[in-house]
């Protein structure tokens, strides 16, 4: 990555390099570069290992599509389609599943005690039988897990990992899967935060004129 290249975050957030916010982001060169490196390592791995490129990008697209941040959603769905032109129907299916299961978050249960009152009910996503046939057991289990960690992570338990192992996931695969879910959860928030700040900044500049 050269100095003049924009990182994914800058592209999706619409941060121009010479703008005040762009300069502030570049005043954090290590955070900027390592964010991009994490993205490259998880979504463009030299060796896919226990999680295929298709699986990494399908899960990333699903997590992004659950968040209602249009640029990030469009980017990760496009990345999935670019993996193989034959994957366009899969990308449509992923978007459809995300739209059908999106819900405001975070929610989930707290342990019995002083926090019980803060427990918040919400849906548990289960892939239906017809979709499961199309996606296969492995990817279906991965999307169910991604929904859990994206929207109600405090409901995660060892039984969620049992479900992944039963669907054919390995330990190392589960860790990669969790890292992909985490990365997209991070990126979408930097993009959404910067975009909303840029919009508010623009509005107050206009109001001051």
């Amino acid at each position: 990555m050269t100095h003049h290249d924009l990182t994914l975050i800058e592209r999706l957030a619409g941060v121009a390099p010479g703008s005040p916010v762009g300069r502030a982001f570049r005043a954090r060169p290590e955070a900027r570069a390592q964010s991009e490196r994490c993205y490259q390592l998880l979504l463009f791995p030299e060796v896919a290992g226990p999680v295929s490129l298709l699986e990494r990008r399908a899960v990333a697209a699903f997590v992004a599509a659950l968040q209602d941040e249009p640029e990030t959603r469009a980017h990760f769905l496009a990345l999935l389609r670019q993996t193989d032109p034959a994957l366009a129907p899969l990308a449509r299916l992923i978007a459809h599943e995300a739209d059908g299961s999106a819900h405001p978050g975070p929610y989930g249960a707290f342990p019995e005690g002083p926090l019980s009152a803060e427990s918040l009910d919400g849906p548990v996503y289960v892939v239906d039988d017809a979709t499961r046939l199309e996606l296969g057991e492995r990817l279906s289990a991965a999307l169910e897990h991604a929904h859990l960690l994206a929207l109600h992570p405090r409901d995660a338990g060892p039984e969620a990992l049992e479900a992944l192992l039963s669907a054919g996931w390995t330990r190392d695969g589960i860790v990669v899967l969790t890292q992909v879910i985490g990365l997209v959860s991070f990126q979408v928030r930097v993009v959404a935060g910067l975009r909303s700040y840029l919009a508010a900044r623009q509005a107050s500049l206009l109001a001051a004129e």
Partner: peptide, 22 residues
């Protein structure tokens, strides 16, 4: 400062998902 705040909050959203998920 706002860039730092966004980065810190966003990154903990990643870290928590590893910590709660595994």
């Amino acid at each position: 400062e706002i860039v730092d705040l966004i980065l810190a909050a966003a990154l903990m959203n990643w870290t928590v998902r590893l910590t709660l998920g595994l």
